[in-house]
Simulated scan of single mutants.
Amino acid sequence: MELQRLLWQHLDMIEFRTLADDHPDLAHSPLLRGALLTLQYAQEHGSIGLTKTKAFKRVFVHWAVENFNWPGKSAEEMFRYNKVVNEYEFPPVEVLHFLLISLRLGRHIKGEFRLTKRGTKLAQAPGHLFAELIPYFVLQIDHASYARFDNRPFGKWDVWMNVINVEADHGTTEAALFKTFYGEPQDWHTVGWREMAAFSACVLRPLEWAGLLMETRKDDGGKHVCHVFKTPLWRSAIKLDTDDMLRPMSLQ
């Protein structure tokens, strides 16, 4: 009943804490890792070359595929069927390119991507880069655009994150979260799979890319099940209205 009340009330507290640059929980964020590697690559090489359409050139995209260690996007998988990978075919690079330009950490100059003074500074400051990058990515970006989805799930980040904070505290499933928010028990095997796909792509995936959630997928009796857990980074980096509803972690 308490969570149902939360779904209807106004929640405005999503506070991202700035962590020390050497905080170990920052290692959970794939997006932060990719941003640091991109900034450091541009710093080391002086720039990153751009195509005529102002995308990163393939030489950098290939390097990113091999070095980002992106969940579900291993180099072996990416190059299995394609010897050449463009920026738009590796969404993490496409999204990071947009984010770094939008946050003025880099800019396009004469066919090259070059770091700004802020970008150069934050390339060596993971905690401060996280504070700049992750709240903007999670809360401000249209996640349906790069996911190539026309549908967007109904809801707002203050409600999604406050409820997930409680529901996923000891682990839950993608289907259970969907049911909590929308009342219908949909998953990838029902007629509501499009709604599930939109929820997964626009809510759960951004939180996973940010390093705040972790998903594990397995087959259970021939049925695909996705389990969702909060990472240590969620607990150390985010302060929410529902924190006082969390149960202590069991020591057993």
Rank of each mutant, 00 (worst) to 15 (best):
Q124D: 15
A125C: 11
P126W: 03
G127N: 02
G127H: 08
L129K: 06
F130T: 00
E132M: 09
L133P: 01
I134L: 07
P135E: 05
F137N: 00
F137L: 03
V138T: 06
V138F: 05
V138Y: 08
L139I: 06
L139R: 05
Q140P: 00
I141K: 09
H143N: 06
H143L: 06
H143M: 07
S145V: 11
S145L: 15
S145R: 14
S145Y: 14
S145C: 07
Y146N: 10
Y146Q: 13
A147E: 14
R148Q: 13
F149Y: 14
P153H: 10
P153E: 08
G155C: 09
G155S: 08
W157C: 04
W157S: 08
V159G: 07
V159T: 15
W160S: 05
W160G: 01
W160E: 08
M161L: 13
N162H: 02
V163I: 10
I164G: 00
V166I: 10
A168P: 05
H170M: 09
G171W: 07
G171P: 08
G171E: 04
G171L: 08
T172D: 04
T173G: 06
T173V: 04
E174W: 09
A176I: 04
K179R: 15
T180A: 13
F181T: 10
Y182N: 10
E184N: 09
P185Y: 10
Q186R: 12
Q186T: 04
W188P: 00
W188R: 15
H189D: 13
H189C: 05
T190E: 05
T190R: 02
V191M: 06
V191D: 14
V191W: 11
G192E: 02
W193Q: 12
R194A: 11
R194H: 15
R194S: 12
E195D: 14
M196K: 04
A197I: 05
A198P: 01
A198W: 02
F199Q: 03
F199K: 03
F199I: 01
S200M: 07
S200I: 01
A201T: 02
C202W: 07
V203K: 02
L204I: 12
P206L: 06
L207K: 03
W209R: 03
A210N: 01
L213C: 02
M214R: 15
R217Q: 14
R217D: 11
K218L: 14
D219T: 11
G222F: 09
V225A: 11
C226I: 15
C226M: 12
C226E: 13
C226D: 10
H227C: 08
V228E: 00
K230C: 06
K230Q: 15
T231E: 08
P232A: 00
L233N: 01
L233Q: 00
W234S: 00
A237F: 03
I238S: 06
I238V: 15
I238A: 09
I238T: 09
K239L: 11
L240C: 03
L240P: 02
D241R: 10
D241Q: 12
D243M: 04
D243W: 03
D244Q: 09
